[in-house]
């Protein structure tokens, strides 16, 4: 069974159709890159998979291990193993990062009928992961993302990914706002999480990120559809020729 199947998905936002019948199949262990110009619907796809309110699915379906994802609340999806790394992680003043991480992890475990982590076990796990991502302990004491640099915010997303161990990770424009060093640290973090059981969907405007996170498949989106799919070489082709040809085709 496929891990994630998006079938002929049509999505509207306030009377305007953004996705016009999008199909995507993701199997365990695969890394898919979704590329496309601004406004092609890449972020809409990631939001709909995660369950963000404000989108109306008019047709099609999204199955996660064969289950209807669209019937689930965002927190149920998270507990099942769907993770969205946000393009713009929000700042939450007054909620300490450590408290947030523990609350979220235990909420997911509870939803799956697993026992909650004890405090020492949890702290040990967070410290290990934080260290591998070069995240100082001090950052974990601050409010969630409050005063974090762009790179720190993205690393905090990857920290959560490592902690929650999701089955499918959607990385929405992970490279936006990152300089080359920050990008490399973030990409190393993501690559460390690649495994035969886990799939990744990497959404990006630029080919640059794919030098660091090398995909198995590349899909080109334009005007709410996948217009071309191929291997990793497709990304290089795009870098050379641009998106214009696909905009015409769609």
């Amino acid at each position: 069974m496929s891990l994630l199947e998006v079938k002929d998905l049509k999505v509207r936002v306030e009377e305007r159709e953004i996705l016009h019948g999008l199909t995507l199949t993701v199997n365990p262990g695969e890394v898919h890159a979704i590329m496309g110009p601004n406004g092609s619907g890449k972020s809409t796809l990631s939001h709909v998979i995660a369950g963000k309110p404000g989108y109306e699915v008019t047709d099609g379906q999204i199955l996660f291990r064969g289950e209807d994802l669209l019937e689930m609340d965002p927190d149920e999806r998270a507990a099942k193993g769907v993770f969205l790394a946000f393009q713009y992680p929000v700042e939450i003043p007054g909620v300490a990062t450590m408290n947030f991480l523990r609350t979220a992890l235990n909420a997911q475990r509870k939803a799956r009928g697993e026992s909650e982590f004890s405090t020492p076990d949890f702290l040990k796990k967070v410290r290990e992961v934080a260290k591998s991502l070069n995240i100082p302990q001090d950052m974990l004491k601050r409010g969630v993302n409050v005063g974090f640099s762009g790179g720190e915010k993205k690393r905090n997303e990857i920290l959560q990914m490592a902690l929650f161990e999701p089955a499918v990770c959607i990385l929405d424009e992970m490279d936006s706002g990152l300089d080359i060093d920050a990008l490399r640290i973030a990409a190393d973090g993501v690559n460390a999480l690649r495994s035969p059981d886990r799939a990744m969907v990497v959404i990006t405007h630029y080919q640059r990120l794919l030098n660091y996170i090398v995909p198995d498949f590349v899909h080109v989106m334009s005007k709410g559809r996948v217009v071309k799919s191929g291997g990793k070489d497709l990304a290089l082709e795009l870098e050379a020729s641009g998106y214009t040809q696909f905009e015409d085709a769609a």
């Binding site: 995660a50 369950g51 963000k52 309110p53 609340d73 965002p74 927190d75 999806r77 998270a78 507990a79 969205l84 946000f86 992680p89 929000v90 939450i92 003043p93 007054g94 909620v95 408290n99 947030f100 609350t103 979220a104 992890l105 909420a107 997911q108 939803a111 409010g143 959560q160 929650f164």
Partner: peptide
């Protein structure tokens, strides 16, 4: 803030749990 609520829910918190965390803050 709806965007904060969604972020927390996307991390596995129920609606009430997410609200509680933001109210505490």
């Amino acid at each position: 803030d709806e965007s904060l609520l969604f972020y927390l829910r996307a991390r596995g918190l129920s609606e009430k749990e997410a609200q509680a965390l933001l109210i505490q803050a």
